[in-house]
Design a protein around this nucleic acid. Structure first.
Lengths: 152, 152
DNA sequence: GCTAAAATGTCAACATGACTGACCTATCTG
DNA sequence: CAGATAGGTCAGTCATGTTGACATTTTAGC
């Protein structure tokens, strides 16, 4: 079953099911947060900003551009919107006044907690039901997929 | 570790790592096919069409719209392009001449095989290295995430 | 202290892609 | 024949992302 040289139609179908499982799980995970964001006319980009600013309070705008892999022009609009809605604050750095240190307001933390919390809760329920062994196996497979990036 | 009532910061961080692992794995999986598609000015939509038509030869356009969850207007352009490039053919149904039966040409099958084959190979390598137990655990977790869709 | 460079923000022009709405042909069904 | 169905297309709109150019503020080097 785990032989690399197994190229039977059955194995190919099993791998196709793995492909589809990844896509379905991904969609299931973002569906509800996307719907909540849409109620405020926000999108997944805003969630990504909230998530990374939340986990890296004090990041500069430039750092965030690198993390998100977007241009400053495309970050500008969603970031301004998040600031207007009172979810993100940008404080001038004390030492270097050119730099803005980004952080979440309490409201921003609350929103981020609801959005990512929904996703964490999905994982928590599944992990709790299936047990530590499956969770560990899942993590090893996901890490393996991410590492494998360099190959053809 | 798998207790649902575990709301410690450590557990929350472990769940965040699970979230990130899913996103990184997803990106790693689509990166190379996306790059190959871009060389022909195609995108992920075209791959989705090739994948579903390849696994459901003879589907009607309407069926495909339902599977992909898009409008016929947005399917029209990529589908026409795939037909022009000789990857997809649309044969009139013998019984009901209103209906087009979609299928892949040999060239379309070859392209789809390269694109999805790259993704299957990534899974095959990781599964082969980690073993059947981790593969089974991974599949159970992914299935659980997809099923869990209905909750808050 | 003057100058070059860095960090940020903004404006304009353009491309993409998806959506809705409207309309059309061809075909089937009652 | 009348209405419904499968498919295709045109037009308008909207959201988002990109590049390029430019201004401001501030820092750092000489």
């Amino acid at each position: 079953m785990t032989d690399l040289s197994d190229t039977t139609p059955e194995r190919e179908q099993a791998l196709n099911q793995a492909l589809e499982a990844l896509f379905y799980a991904f969609n299931a995970l973002v569906a509800h947060p996307d719907a909540m964001l849409a109620e405020q006319n926000l999108s997944r980009v805003h969630h990504r900003i909230l998530y990374f600013v939340g986990r890296n309070p004090g990041v500069s705008v430039n750092d965030l551009l690198g993390i998100l892999g977007v241009t400053k022009q495309s970050l500008n609009a969603p970031m301004r919107r998040l600031a207007e809605l009172g979810y993100v604050r940008a404080d001038t750095d004390a030492a270097d006044r050119r730099v803005r240190r980004l952080s979440l307001t309490p409201a921003g933390q609350a929103l981020e907690s609801v959005l990512s919390g929904d996703q964490r809760a999905r994982f928590a329920r599944v992990f709790a039901r299936l047990g530590a062994a499956d969770e560990a196996g899942w993590r090893r497979v996901m890490a393996g997929l991410a590492e494998d990036e360099g190959l053809t």
